[in-house]
Design a binder for these strands. Structure first.
Length: 658
RNA sequence: GACCCCAUCGUCUAGUCAGGUCUAGGACACCAGGUUUUCAUCCUGGGAACAGGGGUUCGAAUCCCCUUGGGGUCGCCA
């Protein structure tokens, strides 16, 4: 019988489901004592366990969009509530809308495994969790899911903390870093929460909800393989459940390794309300008795997640859609443990432009593909031991440094998928936030550009898009460009300087503060990323004698065509430049313009292009007078002389010549 | 294969829950012009979508069903 739990909830259940209340099981009331209800409803032969309900009682598989969620008042709720009495269909039974609203304070968590940098998908999940909680005065929790002892847990594995901090996503509770973290409900690493899990295991086993299983991983692998060969579906056969208690006790006593499995109820349907997908219904019979404790004593993900969410009082679980099916397990576990069920929201996946799932493993996959294509079997760029380990299994991923050196050695381009990749490529954190938010959420009203404050204020689960999104780098780039252009000059200079400090120190050595500032400003309107000024600006730090000339058609055209041609103009304007009093844009521009007026029909381009080639080696640079000033008179004159000295070679077609 | 989820321009999406105001809006990309000392910007204009089929309705992008397509999950990984 249903007992205890939220009074209002149960009251309404009873009021509405007179005869069949037995099979309506409140998740918070199923604590002990085995199955809470009896055989229950016979109307369709399948007992339905309603663990949560929205206002829509349809049993259709098609999702019914929930109007809102969270403990926030919403005008739509009234309407929703009002419709309840009108429906009252056959199972799953209907609870009024607010029955699924978690009345607790809003607390969300982001729970990655410690596997290095944060990838785009994880970042978006974290962002949604953060925005949802913070926008409602709640807390955002970070938790490390490190129950897999085979995975590394060193400092590098926690690199995602830096990525989060860079994005401006700060956490109220969790590992301590960047001035964030701490909290009362820790520790926030699962490997340090063993006692909590152990207590829960005992409770489940004692209650008959779980049992020890002695098959080894190898045996199970073999059974799965056999099933595959016979083209039948593999299901754990519950052999361990048939063991008599004395045998189990003896085996446990002698220390025989074993896992613990959850006993999945027979003939029940698990129905839960997803805040973005609506009603989801899965028959429990689709599941086999899944492992909740591994032989090494650690909990599996499914178990740890449920225990931790309860202990940390997580009210809303916002995660990727790949977890939608897992939710069934979690809901079952919560019911068996007597836990409160959080509100679930499964957001769609992010795909690569080619339609494949965007994954942190994509770098590794790219590398494996290239290695296979080239038929490589000996270590390249990494040591033998690492190579052997990497080859051993597709689950073994190279760490970033190794991956990058291997990519460099193979001349392969690694896809940008980590937040850190974009950081290094010169994207602004606020742009990443903005774009990420747009991937799967929209504020409506044709609004696309917004900041964190707006997100906090407007983000809600009911506007999260259900269909998967492809990651569009072009659009991200366009957003970054717009943000860069909108920056005050001083901010832009500071950002470019910070980027140089991290990635292009040579520019800071070569350019003094004033020159660097001019360099940044001169590049502002032509930069799409903070890296652009450096990528095309290598000539600024090149030696005057080692500059490389692009020997393209455009270069020859500027130098050779016309009468007088570019070389001739250069030779002449060199003297104009040498004679200028003060080396500044204000003096250079009128001087060169005057020369152009007198010798090139006023066409500044006739002079600017040859000059550009002389000082940069090609046809691409910031505005020419800025470029000259940044370089300084000596370098400019030397470069002009050098070009003139190489005029023959440069006039002949070829790719490049040094 | 079984189960679950999804389906509007090339892409991200608005519109779908409360059917008519949608000859479907915006953004990125693309194409054509224009500005500019190069590249990049910038300006103007343009093409571009309701997956298909049934049904409900006076009326369907919107509600229902089927089909098709895409994705996810089926681990002592998380």
């Amino acid at each position: 019988m249903v007992s205890g739990g939220a009074g209002v909830r149960l009251h309404l259940v009873r009021a509405e489901q007179s005869a069949a209340s037995d099979d309506v099981v409140d998740s918070s009331s199923r604590a002990e004592g085995g199955e809470g209800g009896d055989d229950g409803d016979a109307r369709d032969g399948v007992r339905v366990r309603v663990l949560s309900q929205g206002c829509h009682g349809q049993r259709s598989v098609r999702a019914v969009r929930r109007p809102s969620c969270g403990g926030v008042n919403h005008p739509k709720r009234q309407r929703c509530h009002g419709s309840v009495t009108a429906s009252a269909p056959s199972p799953p039974h209907v609870l009024p809308f607010f029955a699924m609203t978690d009345p607790r304070p809003v607390r969300t968590r982001f729970a990655p495994s410690p596997s290095g940098h944060l990838h785009v998908g994880g970042a978006r999940t974290a962002l949604f969790c953060w925005a949802f909680a913070r926008g409602r005065g709640g807390q955002f929790i970070l938790r490390i899911e490190d129950t897999d002892r085979k995975r590394s847990s060193d400092a590098a594995a926690l690199a995602f903390l830096d990525d989060l901090a860079w994005l401006g996503i700060d956490w109220d509770e969790g590992p301590e870093a960047h001035g964030c973290g701490g909290g009362e409900r820790g520790p926030y690493r699962q490997s340090e929460r063993r006692a909590l899990y152990d207590a829960a295991f005992e409770k489940l086993i004692a209650g008959g909800h779980a049992y020890r299983a002695f098959e080894t991983a190898e045996e199970l692998d073999a059974a799965r393989a056999a099933a595959r060969v016979e083209k039948r579906e593999y299901r754990y056969d519950r052999a361990a459940l048939a063991l008599d208690p004395a045998t189990v006790a003896a085996w446990v006593a002698e220390g025989r390794p074993h896992a613990v499995r959850f006993r999945v109820p027979d003939d029940e349907a698990v129905v839960f309300e997803d805040a973005v997908r609506g009603t989801v219904r899965v028959e429990a019979s689709e599941l086999d008795d899944f492992v909740i404790r591994k032989a090494d004593g650690f909990p599996t993900y499914h178990f740890a997640v449920v225990v931790d969410d309860e202990h940390m009082q997580v009210s809303h679980v916002i995660r990727a859609q790949e977890h939608l099916n897992n939710t069934v397990k979690h809901v079952l576990l919560q019911a068996a443990l007597g836990y409160t069920r959080p509100v679930y929201a499964h957001v769609s996946l992010i795909f690569n432009p080619d339609g494949s799932k965007m994954s942190k493993r994509d770098k590794d996959k790219t590398l494996r593909r290239v290695v296979k294509e080239r038929g490589l079997d000996a270590p390249v760029a990494v040591d033998e031991k690492t190579w052997a380990w990497w080859q051993e299994s597709k689950d073994h991923q190279l760490d970033l440094d190794d991956a990058e050196s291997l990519a460099a050695a193979l001349d392969a381009h690694l896809p940008e998928i980590n937040i850190d990749d974009f950081r290094r490529a010169g994207y602004l954190p606020e742009v990443m936030i903005n774009y990420l938010a747009l991937l799967g959420w929209s504020p409506g009203e044709d609004v696309e550009k917004f900041d964190r404050a707006f997100l906090l204020e407007r983000f809600d689960l009911d506007r999260v898009v259900k269909s998967p999104a492809k990651f569009d780098r072009e659009k991200l780039l366009a957003f970054n460009l717009d943000a860069l252009q909108a920056m005050p000059e001083a901010d832009f200079v500071a950002a470019v300087r910070a980027h140089a400090e991290a990635h292009h120190p040579a520019f800071l050595e070569r350019l003094d503060e004033a020159a660097f500032a001019r360099f940044a400003v001169a590049n502002k309107e032509r930069s799409k990323t903070l890296d652009d000024p450096f990528r095309d600006g290598g000539f600024f730090v090149a030696g005057d004698d080692t500059l490389t000339y692009a020997r393209t058609k455009a270069v020859r055209k500027a130098l050779v065509n016309g009468e007088p041609n570019g070389f001739a103009h250069l030779a002449a304007v060199r003297e104009t430049l040498a004679a200028v009093d003060v080396w500044s844009v204000e003096t250079l521009e009128p001087a060169v313009q005057a020369y152009a007026d007198n010798h090139a029909g006023g066409k500044l381009g006739k002079i600017a292009q040859p000059l550009r080639i002389a000082v940069s080696g090609g046809t691409i640079s910031p505005a020419i007078f800025d470029t000259l000033v940044i370089l300084g008179r000596d370098a400019v004159l030397r470069r002009i002389d050098r070009l003139l000295a190489h005029r023959e070679a440069i006039s002949t077609p070829a790719e490049t010549v040094s």
